[in-house]
Design a protein around this nucleic acid. Structure first.
Lengths: 199, 199
DNA sequence: CCTACCGATCGGTAGG
DNA sequence: CCTACCGATCGGTAGG
C-alpha cells in the first residue's frame, strides 16, 4: 500500500521544521524559543536545522515568506472577483479566516516578532507584507473610493485599521470556535462599513 | 539653587529602572532584552536590579501595574464625564494619546509580551488590564447601548475591536508626529461610529 | 547597591 | 562529488 497523499503530521525534513518552528514561535515568540527546542519538536538534532537553514533568522524569514506567498494567491482571487467592495473585502476575510488557526497565526508573527529583527530582514519582511498582504486590501479600498462606494479615506491607513481589528484573532492562544471567530469577523466588517452609531 | 522639580532624565534607583526597562522592553521585546542590558542603560550593575526587583518577570509586572494604575485614573475621568458616548470615547482616546509615545508603548507590552509569560502572571496582568483599561471602555459602550445611542453590539468584543484599531499606534517604532497620530485617531473614531460606506 | 561568581543554556559550527 | 543528517563541542551570555 502506498500513501501518495502526505498528511500534515507526516511532514519530514525542511517542511517539518517550518511547521514546528511556526507553531512554537507563535506560541512563545521568536526570542522565547531556542533552536534546541525546535529541534526537539522535530525529533532532530540542532545541526539538522542548520543544514536546512542558515541560522535562526533565516528560519523565521522562510516561514514568513512561504506564508505570505500562499496568502497572496488567495487574496488576489478575492481582489479580482466581481462584486462590491464590501463583498470583495468579505472575500479577503474568508481567505484569512478559512485557514486553520495555526496557519493564520503566522500573521501574528509578522506583527509581533518582525519589528525586533535586525534592520535588513525587518525591511525585507515589511516590503513583502505590504506587497503581498496589506497592499491587496489597499487596492480594493482604493477601487471602492474610485467607484464611489465608500467615502474618500486614506486606503493605507484604513487597511491598517481593518487589519488592526482582526489582529487579536490571528493569535491562536485563546482558541475560539469557528462560530465565535465568524461572529467577530461579521462585527468587524459591519463596524468598518457601517459603524455602531444609531442613525 | 535647589531643583525641587525632578526631570525625567534625573530619575534614580527604582524609578530609573522602571523607565529604562520599559523603554528597552517596548523596543526589543521582553525576551529580546537581558537584565545586563537594562543594568547598563541605568549605569548600574545587574545585581542592583535584583535589589529592587525579585526577578525579570517582577520587573515587567511592576512596569505594567504602575502604568495600568495611572491609566485607570485618566480613563475614569473620561467615563464619568458628561456628554454622548461618542464624546466620552473621544475622552478615552485623549487619555491614551495625550501621553507621550513612550508611556503609551507600555500598552503594547501588554498585548505583545504578556501572552508569553507564565500562567500566573499572565492571568494577573489580564485581570488588571480588563479591570483598569478595557473594562472602562466596555462600560461606556454598554451605557451607550442602554441609552439607545449605539446599536446593540457585544460591548466586550466591540471594545476589543476599537482598541485593535489603535494597537499599531501604541508602538513607538515608527515615530509619528502628533498630527499624524490624531489624523489616525479621528479616522478610528469615525470608522467605529459611522463606518466608511457611502449612504 | 557592588564584586564575584554559579549551573544551564544560548545560537552556531566542527569533522565525518 | 551529493543529500541528509549525526555526536560533540565552540565562544559567549542568560537569569539569578
Amino acid at each position: 500500500m502506498s500513501h501518495t497523499q502526505t498528511q500534515p503530521t507526516e511532514l519530514v525534513g525542511r517542511e517539518l521544521i517550518l511547521q514546528e518552528a511556526a507553531r512554537l514561535f507563535t506560541r512563545q515568540g521568536y526570542n522565547g524559543i531556542s533552536m534546541r527546542e525546535i529541534a526537539e519538536a522535530c525529533q532532530m538534532t540542532k545541526a539538522a536545522l542548520y543544514y536546512h537553514f542558515t541560522n535562526k533568522q533565516d528560519l523565521l524569514r522562510e516561514i514568513l515568506k512561504t506564508y505570505l506567498s500562499s496568502m497572496q494567491q488567495q487574496l488576489s482571487l478575492a481582489k479580482e472577483s466581481s462584486g462590491s467592495v464590501r463583498q470583495r473585502i468579505y472575500g479577503v476575510a474568508h481567505a484569512i479566516f478559512d485557514q486553520n488557526p495555526q496557519q493564520r497565526a503566522v500573521i501574528h508573527l509578522i506583527f509581533v516578532d518582525a519589528p525586533h529583527l535586525e534592520e535588513n530582514l525587518r525591511g525585507e519582511i515589511g516590503c513583502l507584507y505590504h506587497d503581498q498582504f496589506s497592499g491587496v486590501l489597499e487596492t480594493i479600498l482604493q477601487e471602492g473610493i474610485d467607484h464611489n462606494e465608500i467615502v474618500p479615506v486614506d486606503p493605507r491607513l484604513s487597511a491598517q485599521l481593518l487589519l488592526g481589528m482582526m489582529y487579536p484573532f490571528f493569535h491562536p492562544r485563546r482558541a475560539l470556535t469557528s462560530e465565535e471567530t465568524w461572529t467577530a469577523v461579521e462585527l468587524i466588517l459591519k463596524i468598518f462599513f457601517e459603524g455602531v452609531e444609531k442613525r
